[in-house]
Amino acid sequence: MTVLLLWPFSVAAIQFHSYVQGPYVDVVVSDIELPMDQLNKDLGSGLTTVIVAHLTVIKKQTVHTKNQQEVRIRFDLWDEVYNVDQAPPITASAPATANRKFKLKEEVLKIIGTYRFNQILRTSDFGNGEDIRVTFSMIVDPISKDKKQKIKRWLAQNRVGASSSSTATGDSTPAAADPLGSGTKNRSLFGQILDSEFSSDITTGQWVFTSPVTALSPPVSNVGGANEK
C-alpha cells in the first residue's frame, strides 16, 4: 500500500550511460527534470533561451575532464518554428554549430532534456575496475560574473543615502535601519548568485540544476545514444 501511495510522487532520477565509440567512450545524460514552468514561458517568448550543460568526470578523486554544451533556442514569431543552435555539435562531422528548426515544442524539450558528450574518456580508462564518477549541471539563461558586478551597481541605484541627521539634534533614538525600506525582495536573486559555487565565468542563471556525483557504469557498445543525428 505504501509503495502504491508513493509511486505517483516519485521523480525519475537523472541517468548516465556510457557507450563505446572506437577507442573512446561517449557519455549520455538523460531523464533531466526540466523546469517546465519556466521553459513553457521562455521558449515561446520570441527571445533567445540559453542553456549551458556541464559534465564533469572524476577519476581517482580528481577532476579528469570537464565538458560543456550550449543550446540556444529562439522561437520565430512569424514562421512559428523553434530555431535551435547547439555547440559543440553532437556528431564530429557536423559544422561547428548545428542549427536545426523544430515545429513542436516537445521536440525542443527532447533536445534539451538529453545530452551526449562525445569522446569523454578512453575505453582503457575503465581498465582494472577503475572508479569513475560523473556529475552534471545545467543552467538556464546563465548570468556571468561580469553581470553580477552590474547587478550590484543596479542594486545600489535603488538605495537612498543613509545620512542620520538625528545625531546633530542630540536625539538618542535610533535612525531608520534600512534607508530603502526593505531589501528583502532584492535578496532572492542575490542569494542565488552568492550561493553559487561555479568556478567558471558563468556564476549562476535563472535555473540551476546540479546532479549528485554518480558512479559511471562501464560502457556498452554504441546503441545510438540520444541527440545523435
Partner: peptide, 13 residues
C-alpha cells in the same frame, strides 16, 4: 527584479 516591487518579471516579444 531588484526594485523589490515584483515577485517575478519576465519579458516576451
Amino acid at each position: 527584479q531588484l526594485m523589490g516591487l515584483f515577485r517575478s518579471v519576465s519579458m516576451s516579444l
